[in-house]
Design a protein around this nucleic acid. Sequence first.
RNA 1: GGGCGGUUAGCUCAGUCCGGUCAGAGCGCCUCGCUUACACCGAGGAAGUCGCAGGUUCGAGUCCUGCACCGCCCACCA
Length: 907
Amino acid sequence: MTTDLPKAYRPIDFEGAVYERWLAADVFAPDGAGSRADDAKPGFVIIQPPPNVTGSLHLGHAQRTAVEDLLIRHARMQGRPTLFLPGLDHASIAAQVVLDRIIAAEGETRGSLGRERYLERMRAFSDSTKPVMLGQQRRVGASADWGRLRYTMDDGSARAVRVAFERLYRHGLAYRTEALVNWCPGCRTSVSDLETIPTPETGTLWFVRYHLVDEATGEPSASETITVATTRPETILGDTAVAVHPDDGRYATLVGRRVRIPFVERTVEIIADDVVDPAFGTGAVKITPAHDQDDRATGLRHGLPAITVLDEAARVTREGGPYEGLDRYEARARIVDDLRGRGDLEAERPHEMIVGRCQRSNDVVEPRLMTQWFVRTGPLAARALDSTRSGRTRILPARFEKTWEHWLTNIRDWNVSRQLWWGHRIPAWYCPDGHITVSAEEGGPAACEACGRPAAELEQDPDIFDTWFSSGLWPFSTLGWPDDTPDLRRFYPTSVMETGYDILFFWVARMMMLGLHLTGAEPFHTVYLSGLVRDPYGKKMSKTTGNVVDPLEVIDESGADALRFALIHGAAPGMDQRFGPAKLDNARNFANKLWNATRFVVGARPATIAPDARRRAPDPDRLGPTERWIRSRAAAATEAANSALAELAFGEMTRVLYDAIWTEFCDWGIELAKVRLADDDSSPGEREATWWTLVEALDTYLRLLHPVMPFVTETLWGALPHAADDPDLLIVARWPSPSGGVRDEATERDLTAVLDLVRAVRNARAEAGIEAAAWLAADVAVPRALASTVGALKPAISRLARVRPLTLHASRDGLGGREGTPPEGLAVVAGSLEALVRRPAGEPRDADRTRLARELAEAEGFLATARARLANESFMSRAPAAVVEGARAREAELADQVERLRSRLAE
RNA sequence: GGGCGGUUAGCUCAGUCCGGUCAGAGCGCCUCGCUUACACCGAGGAAGUCGCAGGUUCGAGUCCUGCACCGCCCACCA
């Protein structure tokens, strides 16, 4: 069974082969040939958040995959039927932005290629990125069911989109209307509110005089004017009213009068409306219903016309009269100049304001009046809120529930129309009479629903869906919805949705809303929100900043296990983490440690055990304190890891395992065990028991660590003896059960005392400046309670503290020095144990005295605090009995310590 | 304008929900050491008034209030 391990830990040498073995064993699919899933156990399902096909993965994706794969591997080892369904997202707008850049380099544009050729290019482009991305996932170690790989642009997804939309439409939850949408002149499409980033800017507030119309002549008056304040003079061209507050005395007499809009020479009315803030500007506002949300609402209330003066490129339209064809900012400058020329620019001053910019292109988004499709979110959001409030779906970390609440309670209808090409075409057809037919049929409707006109006379909506619409169906469209498939029945609802908090609204909320309405069930019971991976300086990683790290480079260098461990170890849920070489090195070193520890154990097999022996539990009658301690600590680690995992506290879990393996198992466990393994005095049976103990603990640790570091643990586990009922591969081996462990608290206590003594002796030696290699004679006084443990560990203490000969005494008298003969040594007081280490002849004693004096002062300080506490009546009467008891015990211990230190110092 | 998060060793961060052995880790730093698993190592060590000010409590990084910076999210005031 045991195979030879290479001396050096070189992940690149084995990770690929390990992955091949998993694939060959067919263990990823829930019903794969190698699956050891028990169908009686609850299933565990993760539908992977599909990365965009825009290129390659970054560290954020690697983190995503690491966490998801951790959950999946853990569930798989528990014997639960698991499904990790991988996927890719077509990312319509993001992909178009990328492709636009690529074709621009070839001197082409969207327009020059045309819709069909452009889409062809896009398909070719995404076909080229897909394998790269899937290869990256594989290198990270994703144990996904590749046979179920899905794509948001595949036929299944397309059909789900059409059916979903048709149902929403029939249920009155999707509607088409003219509304002001966020228009990006750069991308030439509308974008959602979420994609419009409010950006602070210093603009200008211009005060413009409008001339009232002299009702007698019908001409603008030279003297009668009203001054409005605006930050956007170019929209003057589309003004259809001026508004003042109804209670504003300054303008009371002007309400109902008319003014002449300059340049376009339109005559509009002065109206009164509550929306106007009399304290802002002049208290009079120009109203441009086609280019401002507030004005649109005001216009609707007052029946004002809406005149669009900016086109899809944000150039002035024919309605703009003399300014037609000018870009919005050129027009603005010209209009300001012209107003100044007319003497109608009363004032201008800098103004701090917020403008909306496009998330993709950073262009200033223009409110634009268009007829588009919307999803009515009110009823959908209400159900989503109910799901989290009732706890049917929980969000972790819990604080995000507040954000969730706030967003969903203030949600506005969702504009799903995009004037892009790459995506799912909206399945709505219009007939010449203006009737709408929505159809989920692949070829479209046969005829107009309303008037029966044949399909040939119908025209399909040219727009496509917001990319998040198809993403919103992801948890069930991937399982066969809208059909009632076996997969859907078996794996839906899914278990955990792991993703970054930055797409909580974009994606999670949409999945929840659409999932609840279309399937009647919450699509997942837990939302686990990860933080963002940032660069070492805290900057968000982005291609434009150039600080993006390719996971493959990291994996080539340090291994996938190190990358995964570092990403998980360094993170707390929902908190961003800075990621740099330090964390990675630490993780790699840890893997190396594990590697070498295993190499040692494998190599330390007693000759009496056959190389191909089956793993068995150590003989309980041959266990010494060391063995009992190692087993107990492994059991403790199992408990701690399990409870951390239950809370999805992955960072906590790796911390537990890191300490257990490195500090406890390697630094102490193996070092202690070496003694019995090498000691000629120990019997073959004892040596075997020690070795089996090491194997057992290591086996447990490798299992516990496998979900985080799958490659190295699989490799190392393969080098250890397996039990009769173990599978060949760790990936499907049983998860350690906490009850299977053997906690032994008495042994743990005793060992703590012994290890403290060893540490104290080492410390004393170091402080005294004694040569590390020197063997010194030592006497140790051992209280009765520790006699048996210390007796059994005598050779180990001797080795670890480098003391020889070592003599044990039943009382302090045995240490000598008290009566007359001054001790020639280092006095060491550690808990209830006390040692006297003989110094080499001629060494001065000052350092030792200094150390003792410092320890005494420290102990006295603690003792004083402890006594003050016990003297506090409130504490004694109000604190719980257990706490008081603990305080008493500590006081006694400290008092003893102080007494002994004093007496040592007095010698 | 609301809301949330952060402020703990030189640096990067756990710990705060469930108050008392929690003052921790990694990196860095100092002193030793190539002891046949590991120098991607081992042994020892230095290092923090847990942002500030109040409050609750026998007891507070841990709960409450206020404040100060830093960051994020939401938000139709021209």
